[in-house]
Simulated assay, not measured.
Amino acid sequence: MSKKEKNIEVSVKDIERAGEPVQQIFIKNRLIGEVVTHNQRFKAVLIPSEQQFSVKSQEEGLETVLQQFHLHQY
Rank of each mutant, 00 (worst) to 15 (best):
M1N: 09
M1K: 12
S2T: 10
S2H: 11
S2W: 03
S2R: 12
S2C: 00
K3L: 15
K3Y: 13
K3T: 09
K3E: 11
K3R: 14
K4H: 11
K4F: 10
E5R: 15
K6G: 07
K6E: 15
N7A: 13
N7K: 12
I8R: 08
I8Q: 09
I8E: 13
S11N: 12
K13E: 15
K13R: 11
K13Q: 13
D14I: 03
D14V: 05
I15S: 12
E16L: 07
E16M: 08
E16K: 05
E20Y: 06
E20I: 01
E20Q: 12
P21V: 06
V22G: 03
V22K: 02
Q23M: 12
Q24F: 00
Q24M: 09
Q24G: 02
I25E: 03
F26W: 06
F26L: 11
I27Q: 07
I27E: 08
K28P: 00
N29A: 10
N29H: 11
L31F: 04
I32T: 01
I32R: 01
I32Q: 02
G33F: 02
G33Q: 01
E34G: 01
V35S: 04
V35I: 11
V35C: 06
V35K: 02
V36P: 00
V36D: 04
T37N: 09
T37C: 12
T37V: 10
T37S: 13
H38K: 11
H38Y: 13
Q40W: 07
Q40T: 10
R41P: 00
R41M: 14
F42E: 03
A44M: 04
A44G: 06
V45I: 14
V45P: 02
L46A: 02
L46H: 09
L46I: 06
I47Q: 10
I47E: 14
I47N: 07
P48R: 02
P48K: 04
P48V: 03
S49G: 00
E50D: 15
Q51C: 08
Q51T: 07
Q51M: 12
Q52F: 00
F53I: 03
F53Y: 13
S54M: 09
S54H: 08
V55T: 09
V55P: 03
K56T: 13
S57G: 07
S57H: 08
S57P: 05
S57I: 07
Q58E: 15
Q58T: 09
Q58M: 13
E59G: 13
E60C: 02
E60I: 06
E60D: 05
E60S: 03
G61S: 05
G61E: 01
L62D: 06
E63T: 05
E63R: 08
E63A: 11
T64Y: 00
T64A: 05
V65S: 01
V65Q: 02
L66R: 01
L66Q: 02
L66W: 01
Q67L: 15
Q68P: 00
F69M: 08
F69H: 09
F69T: 04
F69K: 01
F69V: 02
H70C: 01
H70T: 12
L71I: 07
L71E: 15
H72A: 10
H72N: 14
H72Q: 14
H72S: 12
H72R: 14
H72C: 05
H72W: 10
Q73T: 05
Q73C: 08
